[in-house]
Design a protein around this nucleic acid. Structure first.
Length: 697
DNA sequence: GCGATCAGTT
DNA sequence: CACAACTGATCGC
């Protein structure tokens, strides 16, 4: 939970993501994205009154955020006062005190935050220095380095303070797989479920209001099925999203909601109420996209299996140390700690500690004939302090071929005339084009080798229903979830093979893998009858006690081994067209996939930062402005060949022995000794151990 | 009746 | 614990 009170030290007359208390006096409001916990007070009567009494106060946000916000009638009263600002367009705003007439100018730039549609970071430049408010951000490594407007004169701007989303500023979150990884894992789960029959459906159990669109669109693209949702009018002006959604329940992928959805699920009922199709009962699994893949593993029956990678897909550390501000203000303070402690952790990444020692500077330097970068930023603080500040010389990444910084147009927004900006809603078509981005990653043209799904893929509507073709695989029945996470190049691709029965059980691999503490099997298998009958039994037992959570992870060191996912999968051809990520020297990242399963008995909880961390605006940026299309997005998010991003130093790769140990213990049900380690990983490891232990109890 | 806050769930 | 919600109870206006 964000503890940010809404105001920044440097510019206390503006309020961001908070609209209560002190913020009621703000001269201008900013909203980084459309999640409720960043909208506190936004529709309170007190603020509404303030608005009515004021002529000038406005809310500034991205065009997409504005659109999403105004979809809700609760916020309609804001309509005339919302000023949308285009992404990456420095915009001057006059902050006027209406009582005294006192005025202050500030330039704000919205930078894509990669969290949910419309989400942005705010870069403010004014008389009190340049500050960055990150909001909730989920940027892949190197993303900051690609942001033109974080740079000036070829280096990162001199940023006084960063107001940082520190939600995952904890060693336990070190292993967060990339979006691509998570998507890939989900894709395979979904594929293997829905390809069994038209009556096998997937429920995406999404909690937040927005942020799963990336998942939806990609699933839709891949399988030619629209995703069922309760409402889609908020996306009416975002065709790239809209086309992948439907309110028609007759689809195999659901992301619909209901207050009692979890309860429904126990009874094999989807949130939209359906339990069957053509009088044939549906078989449902649920996939829960969640960032809390570690934090949530507390239930007794959870099984955690993790082969850790060496790096998180994004990192506060990388972000902050790249920006290298003078100050950092964490927006999230974990309960057990204090602001100061978090600051202590972050301080080493900031300016002051980067070079405490004065550097030798040759005397007699001539006054610089400064290279004229046509940056229009008149308050170019870099220029003033270049000699004084130890700001590391970081060259911005050439992200566009024609990346010559022209004079930035700096639109000035008159607070009196927000209307002229209203038209910006028309830009959504260009704003969000994730599917194109993804087309590059997974070739949607590729047909399912064993059926005519390709026809369905091409159809705009999924309402004809998929044509079911019997699977051709030998074992016929049981989903081999494990194949999604295997490496194929080593005998140690044993994420699951060390588990009892993951493969050896022949026709019935799944039971023990998903078994609960009672040793009771919870079949994920396609034995339809067992499934539905099982469900009624569950009603009395309570499914939670049976639900196992499995955290799985691949260790595809080989960044190009996407094809390994196909091993043993029924659709040998499907991924062949995927361009393998370029094998780059700088690719040090391991890609992890964590999955947390549930389906009827079990629930498939997946995807740490992935699903809900959609990058729409940034996706667009990447696609249209920054990246050559020949780069796979997978490679993009993890690394860049353009420049060098250092590893997160602490992100040490767990040793195979460790993992082997854990698997063996897990397999045999033995308890696991938690060895205390002093380093930063101790928390990670003990947690992992504890989770495995608890799952074996 | 509405809103804010808190505790509890997922 | 921490995501991003929602529900229900309680209290105050």
């Amino acid at each position: 939970m964000s503890s940010f009170e809404g105001q920044m030290a440097e510019y206390p007359t503006i309020s961001i993501d908070r609209f209560d208390r002190e913020n009621l006096r703000a001269r201008a409001y900013f909203l980084s994205h459309c999640h409720k916990d960043h909208m506190k007070g936004l529709r309170a009567p007190s603020l509404k009154r303030r608005l009515e009494c004021s002529l000038k106060v406005c809310l500034y946000c991205s065009p997409v955020t504005k659109e999403l916000l105004l979809t809700s009638p609760k916020y309609r009263f804001w309509e005339k006062r919302i000023v949308s600002i285009e992404i990456e367009t420095p915009t001057q705003i006059s902050l006027v005190d209406e009582a005294s007439g006192e005025k202050e100018e500030i330039v704000v730039t919205l930078l894509p935050a990669g969290h949910c549609p419309g989400s942005v970071m705010f870069l403010f430049q004014g008389n009190n220095g340049t500050v960055l408010y990150t909001g909730d951000f989920r940027l892949a490594k190197g993303e900051a380095a690609r942001m033109e407007l974080l740079h000036s004169g070829g280096r990162v701007k001199d940023i006084q303070s960063v107001y940082l989303d520190t939600t995952f500023c904890d060693p336990k979150y070190y292993q967060i797989p990339s979006r691509e990884e998570c998507l890939r894992g989900i894709m395979e789960l979904v594929r293997n479920w829905i390809s069994r029959s038209p009556y096998h459906v997937v429920w995406l159990n999404c909690k937040a209001a927005y942020g799963y669109e990336y998942l939806f669109t990609n699933l839709s693209e891949e399988f030619g099925l629209q995703v069922h949702v309760n409402k889609l009018d908020m996306f009416r002006n975002m065709p790239d999203i809209l086309h992948h959604l439907t309110t028609d329940r007759d689809t195999q992928i659901h992301a619909c909601r209901h207050p009692k959805a979890e309860e429904y699920f126990q009874w094999n009922k989807l949130p939209c109420g359906i339990t069957s199709k053509n009088k044939i009962p549906l078989h449902t699994i649920s996939i829960k996209p969640s960032t809390m893949w570690f934090g949530e593993r507390t239930r007794k029956t959870n099984i955690i299996v993790s082969v850790s990678g060496e790096k998180p897909c994004w990192s506060i550390k990388d972000f902050l140390s790249y920006i290298c501000p003078v100050n950092v203000y964490p927006n999230v303070i974990p309960l057990g700690t204090t602001m100061d402690k978090v600051k202590e952790i972050l301080k080493p990444l900031c300016r002051s500690s980067q070079s405490t020692e004065p550097k030798y500077k040759p005397l007699g330097k001539l006054k610089r004939a400064r290279t004229i970068h046509l940056d229009s930023e008149e308050e170019d603080d870099d220029g003033l302090f270049d000699d004084l500040l130890p700001a590391p010389l970081r060259h911005k990444v050439p992200n566009h071929k024609t990346l010559h910084p022209e004079v930035f147009p700096t639109p000035t927004i008159s607070q009196n005339q927000p209307e002229k900006w209203r038209e910006s809603t028309g830009c959504f078509k260009a704003e969000s084009m994730p599917t194109v981005l993804w087309a590059n990653f997974i070739d949607c043209e590729e047909s399912n080798s064993e059926n005519e799904e390709s026809e369905i893929l091409g159809s705009a509507q999924g309402d004809t229903g998929p044509v079911f073709q019997p699977q051709q695989r030998a074992d016929g029945e049981v989903p081999q979830w494990e194949v999604f996470f295997k490496r194929d190049d080593e005998g140690t691709d044993d994420c699951l093979e060390n588990l009892p029965s993951s493969t050896e059980a022949g026709g019935s691999q799944s039971p023990k893998l998903f078994s609960d503490s009672d040793g009771e099997s919870t079949h994920i298998s396609s034995q339809a009858s067992s499934q539905s009958t099982h469900i009624s039994e569950q009603g009395s037992q309570g499914w939670d006690s049976q639900s196992d959570t499995v955290l799985l992870s691949s260790q595809d060191r080989n960044s190009g081994d996407i094809t390994s996912l196909n091993k043993g999968v029924y659709r040998p051809g499907i991924k062949e067209n995927i361009p393998a990520p370029q094998p780059e020297q700088n690719v040090l990242c391991l890609n992890d996939t964590y999955l947390d399963f549930k389906s009827r008995d079990q629930d498939v909880n997946t995807l740490p930062s992935a699903g809900e961390t959609t990058t729409l605006s940034s996706g667009k940026q990447m696609l249209q402005e920054k990246r050559p299309l020949t780069l796979s997005s997978s490679a993009d998010s993890q690394s860049s060949s353009d420049f060098e991003i250092p590893c997160t130093p602490e992100a040490e790769l767990p040793k195979q022995e460790h993992l082997q140990y854990l698997y063996e213990k897990l397999a045999t049900g033995e308890s696991i000794v938690v060895e205390k380690r002093k380093d930063i990983h101790s928390s990670y490891w003990s947690r992992l151990h504890q989770n495995i232990k608890s799952s074996c109890n």
